[in-house]
Amino acid sequence: MAVSTVAVLGLTAACSGSGGGSGGDGKDEKPGRADATSATAKLEKAALASGDVKKYKVAKESGEANQGKGAPQAGRVNPAECRPLSEMLTAAAPPKSKAHVSRTLSSTDVAETTTTEVVLLAYGQADAENTMDTLRTATKSKKCATFGDGGHRYIGVRPQPAPVGGDEAVSYKLASRAGEFLDRDRVTVVRSGSTLIAFRASNVFDPESAKSDEEGEAAGLPEKFRDGVTADPKVADAIVDAQLAKLAEAGKR
């Protein structure tokens, strides 16, 4: 589903900080903050809600849930050129974005263990395009096949086929170890005008469950009784299509 909204939501104008005063009465207060509030309100209207995607529950991330999940600080990511990859792994706003909102989608099918986080980010047009360029470069860099971010070590970073939709898209996968488990992520970032949408699908690979699944399959155990977590997570096309469609619709209001 190809959706192109070159001037989606007027976010570039909303975040410019130009125009609008208080008639020269000296009472103007932090116009940048007012612009960010306006941009956030527009993103909220475009964000997915319950009922927008069949067979998925939609939850809004609270401010408490985002505490400690800020964008990576300068010098924390090593190599530094891999920072764009890490920035898209949090439900927080990267430095050059003006506003953001996030949603978490989980399947109503209990056998589906993948969750998908969707983050809408408002940028200026030039910054949006530059962010995609640096992100695309990082996914292809051999130096970023493995990188560190604070206490996390990401491995197996590889570019992936990107979906058709928006003005351009970048997709990559990566993983990090958590004891005996492997946290796996597939990230797809779509640009539509000056708005970026980061889709992050995640699941956990459990070696013991995978072994049990293999044994169950060999024994003829029906698939519904297996854990089904051996496959890499994927961003569902239905989620991408629904979010792009809602973004386009919000831009017409």
Rank of each mutant, 00 (worst) to 15 (best):
P163K: 04
E129C: 14
L196N: 09
S176E: 09
T188K: 12
R136F: 11
N130Q: 15
G151T: 05
R136S: 15
A175G: 10
D185C: 06
T195M: 09
G165E: 00
Y123C: 13
P163Q: 03
T188R: 12
H152Q: 02
I155N: 07
R153T: 02
F147H: 01
R200T: 02
M132C: 15
F199L: 04
F147P: 00
P161N: 10
A198T: 02
D185F: 10
V187P: 03
R177I: 13
L135G: 09
V190A: 08
V170C: 07
G148K: 05
V189S: 11
S176L: 07
L174Q: 06
R186W: 13
D167V: 01
S171Y: 13
A175F: 08
A169T: 06
L174T: 06
T139A: 04
A122Q: 14
G193I: 01
T146Q: 03
D183N: 10
T195D: 11
D183K: 11
K142T: 15
R158G: 01
V190L: 08
G124L: 15
A122R: 13
C144W: 02
R191W: 10
A145N: 08
R184I: 07
V164R: 13
R158A: 05
V170A: 12
I197W: 03
V187R: 04
E168K: 09
M132A: 15
D149K: 01
Q160W: 07
A145Q: 07
G148L: 00
A169V: 05
A145K: 09
V157M: 03
R200Y: 00
A138P: 05
E168G: 08
G166F: 01
G179W: 08
S194E: 04
E168V: 07
V189R: 07
F199R: 03
V157N: 01
V164T: 14
P161V: 06
R184K: 10
G179R: 06
V170K: 11
S194K: 02
H152V: 00
Q160K: 14
R200L: 01
G179K: 09
G165V: 00
T137E: 12
R191T: 04
Q125T: 15
R184F: 05
N130P: 12
R191S: 07
R184W: 06
A175S: 12
K173P: 03
R177D: 13
Q160R: 14
D183A: 08
V170G: 08
